[in-house]
Design a protein around this nucleic acid. Structure first.
Lengths: 263, 263
DNA sequence: TCGGAAGTTTGATATATGTCAAAAATCGTG
DNA sequence: CACGATTTTTGACATATATCAAACTTCCGA
């Protein structure tokens, strides 16, 4: 099998990377698009729609938006209007504690839908930031709700999306609550690996899109611990790391970290 | 203000507590009930329904079930059919890792709806166990979906329930990922306090329904650390603990744990 | 292409929390 | 009501990860 080459294609200015605090979501001329024509449809929208249902789905006035590295897709406190399906690129979501602490709640890639956490409060409870140049498809939630009253398949899909998010979060809780640094990092790498594989990229060689700091924040570790653990994995022949490039050399070995009983 | 006395009323056998591994959800004769007649409606079902909508809601063939302490409401791997609104009592949900590690993902009390995480996989991904004698209202999910296509208020409510669950899980992630033992425990106590207050119980004096072990599992700590931290709080005049009875003496003091910059 | 900023690695040391163990308290059942 | 089981408390000690610091590498824009 040949994998699409998985490298950062876009680079942007450091200013964009740091993110202009006041800037609105970058609005390159938003393009109207239709789900039925989207190549990612299978990942983010329901499968097996009939022709008639497909036509109904067209009613969704989804708009495509582009973001540069460092741009905010949305910000904590911003009014909630839409969900966003990632068409390409890579995002992180983070919650900030008053006192400055931050927790990266997740990393999202193409085909994933983000913003579900904002439904409950009508305001985004976290930030979503592009970690590389990205494109999202904006899905106005009110329309999504209306439409899903007519399309049970869509309704069911929406419910599954939300529920899946809950399950994912619970597995992160398990990770944070009961795993050691090595296990957390192994879990993290294996998770990335699976998700790349599901998208046709190599499951064993990829570029990390996030810093050690961000990985650490997600895994409840300090960046030094992340770095050290990477190094340790490398010494043990499990992976090969060089800054942002990772190669998973011994997948079974990485998986074995879950067998080890620390209790 | 006078609070309802908040004590465990029911006691049951140790056998029940430990939970018979093979036993099905205890089925005291399930009673058919209606949401409109339920005193907890405001907590678990949408507010402000018109008379007509109320009549529609009656279509939900919800059934009341009773559980003894230690009983499983549902089990990891069990087929998903219904959500459960807790009418009274107290539950914990936990995910188990193959290797025996467990993570208590949450504690649920009256008015809360559980089982949302099972929608995505048609199977419950966790266990739900009664921590005291409890009653739930079983809400067949298929009916809930059908009905919510006709009742936008219900649809919206369902979405908010799921989204709220995501937000809650994220705040637990923040807790597990970036707080110290004292902060975690303070957050835990304050959270319980608020939830008791919302139900008309005293926000400052209550019985813990869970063991130190379970608290620790939820907070990513060992039971000894939980116990020690309780003792430390007591020495500092923040709380008074005696086994399962807790009194929060200095709420501002407890809240202050979040101001302290550990970074 | 170069220089400065940001990110990464590694070392030495500190510390919060885990581990092991034993006594004390509490709880539920016979 | 008392006994055994479970849970809680406390102590002594171990250890994983954090902290502080400095050198090194990578990246990006001038």
């Amino acid at each position: 099998m040949i994998y699409v080459k998985n490298r950062g294609i876009f680079r942007s200015s450091a200013a964009a990377l740091r993110g202009n605090p006041l800037q609105q979501p970058v609005s390159r001329p938003p393009t109207k698009i239709t789900c039925s024509a989207c190549t990612l449809r299978d990942l983010c929208m329901p499968l097996g729609l009939s022709k008639g249902e497909m036509i109904q789905l067209e009613q969704l006035s989804s708009v495509k938006r582009a973001f540069k590295r460092g741009d905010f897709l949305y910000r904590n406190g911003t009014p909630f209007t839409s969900l966003y399906a990632i068409r390409m690129g890579f995002f992180k979501t983070q919650v900030l504690h008053e006192d400055g602490r931050e927790q990266v709640t997740g990393f999202q890639m193409a085909g994933e839908v983000i913003g579900l956490d904002a439904i409950s409060g009508d305001v985004h409870p976290c930030d979503a930031i592009a970690l590389e140049d990205s494109e999202v498809c904006e899905l106005p939630f009110a329309q999504l709700e209306t439409l899903s009253r007519e399309l049970p398949v869509l309704q069911r899909h929406l419910h599954k999306l939300m529920s899946r998010e809950i399950v994912r979060d619970q597995s992160v809780m398990l990770l944070l609550g009961s795993m050691r640094a090595e296990e957390r990092l192994a879990a993290f790498l294996l998770n990335l690996s699976e998700r790349y594989a599901a998208r046709g990229y190599s499951p064993t060689a990829f570029q990390l899109r996030m810093t050690r700091q961000e990985i650490g924040s997600h895994l409840g570790l300090k960046l030094e611990t992340v770095s050290r653990t990477f190094s340790a994995f490398q010494e043990n022949g499990l992976i090969s790391v060089r800054s942002k490039s990772v190669e998973l050399i011994d997948l079974p070995g990485l998986r074995a970290f879950f067998a080890q009983q620390t209790l």
